[in-house]
Amino acid sequence: MMIVRHAEHKDLDDIYILAGKSGIGLTSLPQNKEILSARILRTQNTLQGQAAQSEQGYLFVLEDTELQRVVGVSAIEVSVGLTEPFYNYHVGKQVHASQALNVYQTLNTLFLSNDHTGCSELCTLFLDPDFRKNQNGKFLSKIRFLFMAAFQDCFKNTLIAEMRGYSDENGRSPFWDALGHHFFDMDFATADYLSGIGQKVFIAELMPRFPVYIDLLPSAAQQVIAQVHPQTLPAAHVLETEGLRYQGYVDIFDAGPTLEAEIKDLRAVQNSHVCKVKVVPEVPEGTIRYLVANDCYQHYRAILVSNQADHASLPLTVAQAEALGVQAGQCVRLLPLDIMEK
């Protein structure tokens, strides 16, 4: 059985192995045990109410209970940019006009921005390639929305998610080569890694403060602005089905798009509901798959089921109830995995 729960210190070795498989571009999952251990500790401190707002975050793991192994991770940051600036580019326009010369030119530009300071952020989604089946990826991603639906007061009004931008099979980013490389004098992988482990001061010290004219960049760089890495397209589609949209902001390193939404407008917030558990020997399998969570803040557990449910009750087997840590008569939160067609 697959279970999503909060990360614990016992998961460190498994998460370290996953970090090694994630490749270049997933900056929030560096293969560094000290940093990963601190990330787990931060989750535990957040759950215990011992973390300052700027340090609050949740790291979830997907565990295969038969293998007793963590095979995926996903996370939410509560409020970004409160201790160090949160940078991205805003894709905007500048108009150059001269009546005397009868010239009117609209040019696309990149403005260095801190507009998302204080927003909550979805991040660190990675699933072991061997387990990219049986809807595991959707489960791991979407369970964060169900958690936010249950505990909205723990988050900010706006939610963002930075999508991995395009890089080739050798990890080279056309956008970085055309722009960032000239200011940082390091390769894309190094800059991305330093940013991911929190060493972001160099961004403020070295990035150009003036608008960058997109038309002056090489064609290869222009074409990848706001483009999602091919391996990240399925994850981006999942977020879009939950209500997030591109609003004109991109990453400063690889120009990957930032998706955003108001938390109150998310599908999980609008459509999830709470119902009571019925524990039964066998459960007739339905045609709809549901995310099911126990809504227990500190001991959060979630599973994916195909049980026949209604708004009043959800039948669970003994094994499913034990996985969630619930008993008959207790409540769980329920959301269809996919959007229901009307």
Results as ranks from 00 to 15, higher is better:
M1Q: 08
H6E: 02
E8M: 11
D13H: 11
I15A: 04
A19V: 10
R42K: 12
G49P: 11
E55I: 03
Q56M: 12
D64H: 07
S74C: 09
A75L: 04
I76Q: 02
I76F: 05
E77D: 11
S79C: 12
P85T: 15
Y87H: 13
G118I: 07
E121L: 09
L125W: 00
L127G: 01
F131T: 05
R132C: 09
S141M: 08
L146E: 03
Q152D: 05
I160V: 15
E162C: 06
Y166K: 03
S167R: 11
G171C: 09
F175Q: 06
L179D: 00
A189V: 01
S195E: 04
G198F: 10
Q199G: 00
L206F: 06
V224S: 08
V224M: 02
Q227E: 13
V228A: 12
V228S: 14
P234F: 12
Y246K: 14
D254N: 03
K264E: 07
V269M: 04
K276Q: 15
I288A: 00
L304T: 04
Q308E: 14
A309W: 01
L314F: 10
L316C: 01
A319G: 02
A323Y: 04
V326C: 04
V332P: 03
D338G: 03
I339K: 07
I339M: 09
